[in-house]
Every structure is written in structure tokens, then in C-alpha cells.
Design a protein around this nucleic acid. Structure first.
Lengths: 254, 254
DNA sequence: CACCGATGCTTGGTCTGACCAAGGTCACCC
DNA sequence: GGGTGACCTTGGTCAGACCAAGCATCGGTG
């Protein structure tokens, strides 16, 4: 929106920004696809008429967004900077740090998780394959181990929810679910470790997972959505209660 | 997951990655908050024992993720790199480029939109303020203008959906909705411009918006969710049909 | 002929040092 | 007192250099 005078100051875009834009243009227009290679940094720099440093800063941005693989040295077939298409890592990192900056609190995240996972659950119910179900059941079996350390349980829990998202066969839902889950991993783990009545809670989680899994297997989309909804909100209630007791206040800024 | 031998190759992390990690640690631990300043690049580099280039590459990554404001030169109060907390820009850019890389197709995106906006709509229905409703109605009034160019209509449509998300008072839902909408802005605009029976479609959209807005105003969460669901799926059906006719195939890779 | 090691090229990772431009500060001069 | 110009700080950019890792090639050795 222009300001009152209709004029706004020019923002000179920096060299590396223009490099990012060029690459993104090529991707948007379909010129660059997953697996394609960008020119070597030195060549690319001279092609674009900028310094190698500018190119490198641009490549770092693209890599951080999951657009490029970690570059490899040498002359091999996949040496250099290769177009990737792995949004999850960047997405997760981005969400995690913004969660830490308290742009998003746990209530908001829970609400979004419920929305996304309800959708995953009902899609999964209508189209999960046998191998999807087998994967989910295998994870649940491993979670039944009473001697499992908390962090392993938490990781398996994460894997289960990711398996559910994958069963929905929707990569965006999967990526968002994975990213959000990754972003709050530490928070959840902390909650797990502080649990007052841990065994009861863990058993409740196991029962809810089984029941969700059953609903998916039976193809009951509505029940699957409701199960995952109750499951997430239930644990969130316990977790936020636990966390509030152990960290009553965030320390004030200096 | 470790490989069969239980050993996996070390991945030496690069200098700039360690810088990013340091900054993120400080954010995760609460040491750095929104508005705080990082040291000047030169000082920061010598503090961390790396070159200025490494620091700069790290700052670019953080900036791309919306963690830092665009740095300002000079000695002013907000000169240098300031912690930001603006996830939407980075999120949108990230999603857009991954949409272009066909990591996500329009069906998947629509499903995710429906999931997120159903949640927004029902939350909004239960807690929208008068000013939220006024904002939404004002946008709808402006969309009634028959002479509006298609791109303006599209932008107002976007604004309406963002206003809905904001009425839900959940910043994560808002950020995700905005980012996804931004990622498919061009696609939707293209669909708008290719519409066969444009007036009929636009009028249908207007009716659906009004009816959604009414449901929110009446506090009817379930109806609001269903309205937005039908609205999004309906337009998606038309849009994908239109787009398929105008661009029957993506050209094969060379 | 098959195998293997040395050598050299390509490529990313890093650092140093330099210059420019923009924004602020402050002392000096009218 | 007010303007103004010198100076400092800070990011933006570049050139050039060196290192280490990965590959390819070639020549020697069995």
C-alpha cells in the first residue's frame, strides 16, 4: 500500500537478492528442475557479473530454503549446487525459530496441528495402503516397550504422526506436519520428561494411537479425524499444564 | 535412523552453519529477543573467530527466514542486524518456490488450504470482534465493484481470506494461510484471467463470501467451516479445469 | 592385460584486505 | 544558535588467494 503521498522510498536490491531472484525465475518458469545443476560458483559469478561472494550468499539462502542440496566438491555427476526440492528441513527450522521468538505460542500451534492432522487422518482413512498401515502398526508396537527412554518414545510418536501424514498422500500436509512437529520437538520432550504421572499418560497415548489407527484401517474418516483431534488436544492440555508448573514465567528482558 | 552398521559418515558443518546455530541457540534460550541487535559484522566475526564472509552468509540465511530485518548502515538506533520475527515473507517465498518445483500440486495445496481455513473459520466464528467483521465486510463491499480488474479482485479475495485468518486470532494459521495464498497467487490470477464464464463465477464467489461472513457473524462455527470448505473446493474445481484446458501439459524435461 | 598409485584439475570452503556508500555524530565556523 | 562539513561506524561488494575434497587421467607395476 503506498503511503499518503503516493511515493515510497526506493529499496535498492542487493546483488545477492538479484541472484536469488534470477534462480527463482528460472524455477518458476520451469527452466530449472529438480536434479538440475547450477554453474560452478566462479563461472556463475562471472556470468551474472557479480562477485563470487554475492553468488555464495544467494546460494546459502536457496540452500536454507531447501531449494539446493548441500553442494559437493569435485567433478562428479552431482557435484556443485543441485536443485533439491526438500522443503521440510527449511520449513522446520523456520518454524522452530519463530516459535522460539514467541511469534507462535503453544496454543496456536496446537490449533494448527489439529487442523492439519484432522485432514491427514481423514484422507488417510479413505486411502491408506496396507503398507501405510503396517508402518503405523510397527511404530505402535515399538512404542509399547515399557523400558523405552522418554526421548525415544517422543521420536517414535513423531514418526507415527508423520506416518499418518504420509498415508494421507499429501506432501504439503506431510511437510507442514513434520515441520511443526520438529519445531516443538524440544518443548514436547521437555513436557515428557516432567510428567507427573508418566505411565498413565503414556498408556493413554498408546490407547489413543491404537484407536486412531483402527479408525484409519476401517476407513472411518470422521472418527479418525475426531480421534486425532482428541489425542492432540488431550496431550496438549497435559503438556501445557506440566510446563506451566515447571517454568511458571519467562524471565523478563533486561 | 543409523545405517546397518550403526555408523554414519561425519558431516563437517561449515563455518556459516555454526554461526546460524549459535544465533538460533541464543534465540531458543531466550537470550535474543525481537528487537535485539546483533554485533556489527566485523566485531561478530572476530568474536566467533571466523571471517566476515562466514558471518555474512549466516546473516543472509537468518534474514531469508525472517529472523532478521534488512540490515541498516550507520550508527542509528536500529542500525545493524536486528532480530525480527516476520515469518510470513520467508514462509511464502519458500512455499512458492517449492510449489514451482512441483513438490506440491494444486490438489495437495487445496486440501491443506481447506484444512487451515476450516480451522480459521470456526475459530473466527467463535471469537471474531466487531472490527474483524467490519474489515471483512468492507473488503466484500469493495469486491462488489463490477468494473474491478481481475488482479485487484484476486488481491481483495486474498485480503478477505487473510482477514478471516486474522479474525481467528491465531498467528500461525494466519502465517500459513497467507504464505500458501501468496505461493499460489500467480496460479490463481492466471485462472481468473482465463475464466470462461467470468461474471457467473465472480458472482458465485461473492455470494459464498457473504454467506461465510454471515455464518461467522452469527457465531455458527460448523456452518462457517463448511462454507469455506465448499467455497475453496468449488473454486479449485473451476480453476483446475480452466488451467488444464489452457495449459494441457507441462513441457517434458530436455 | 589388469590393477594401482601419483598427479593434476575442478570445485566448494574460508580468509584477508580493500574500497564504496549511506547514515549519524560532533565539533567547528558563520 | 544554527548550519555544515569532517569523521566514524556499518553494511555492500569485490578481488585474490589458499586449502581440502573428489575425480579423472596417465603411467608404472604385477
Amino acid at each position: 500500500m503506498p503511503d499518503a503521498t503516493g511515493w515510497q522510498p526506493l529499496i535498492r536490491s542487493r546483488a545477492w537478492e538479484q541472484v536469488v531472484d534470477r534462480v527463482e525465475e528460472k524455477i518458476l518458469s520451469g527452466d530449472l528442475r529438480i536434479g538440475d545443476r547450477l554453474p560452478p560458483e566462479r563461472d556463475f559469478a562471472s556470468m551474472l557479473g557479480v562477485s563470487r561472494a554475492a553468488v555464495r550468499e544467494a546460494l546459502r539462502v536457496l540452500e536454507a530454503h531447501g531449494v539446493l542440496h548441500r553442494p559437493r566438491v569435485g567433478t562428479g555427476r552431482d557435484s556443485g549446487s543441485v536443485i533439491a526440492g526438500t522443503p521440510t528441513t527449511g520449513l522446520s527450522r523456520l518454524l522452530r525459530v519463530h516459535v522460539a521468538l514467541s511469534n507462535f505460542d503453544l496454543d496456536e500451534i496446537t490449533e494448527a496441528r489439529v487442523a492439519l492432522e484432522r485432514a491427514s487422518a481423514s484422507l488417510a482413512a479413505s486411502q491408506a495402503t496396507e503398507s501405510d498401515l503396517a508402518r503405523m502398526r510397527e511404530l505402535l508396537d515399538r512404542m509399547d516397550d515399557e523400558t523405552l527412554p522418554r526421548d525415544r518414545f517422543n521420536d517414535l510418536d513423531t514418526d507415527f504422526h508423520m506416518a499418518l501424514a504420509e498415508a494421507a498422500d499429501n506432501r504439503l500436509l506431510t511437510a507442514l506436519t513434520t515441520a511443526i512437529r520438529g519445531a516443538i520437538r524440544h518443548t514436547l520432550l521437555h513436557a515428557f520428561e516432567q510428567l507427573a504421572d508418566a505411565d498413565a499418560v503414556l498408556n493413554a497415548l498408546r490407547r489413543q494411537h491404537r484407536s486412531l489407527c483402527e479408525a484409519v484401517a476401517q476407513g472411518d474418516a470422521d472418527r479418525a479425524a475426531d480421534e486425532v483431534d482428541r489425542h492432540i488436544r488431550g496431550f496438549h492440555r497435559i503438556a501445557s499444564h506440566t510446563l506451566n508448573r515447571s517454568m511458571p514465567r519467562t524471565p523478563p528482558a533486561c
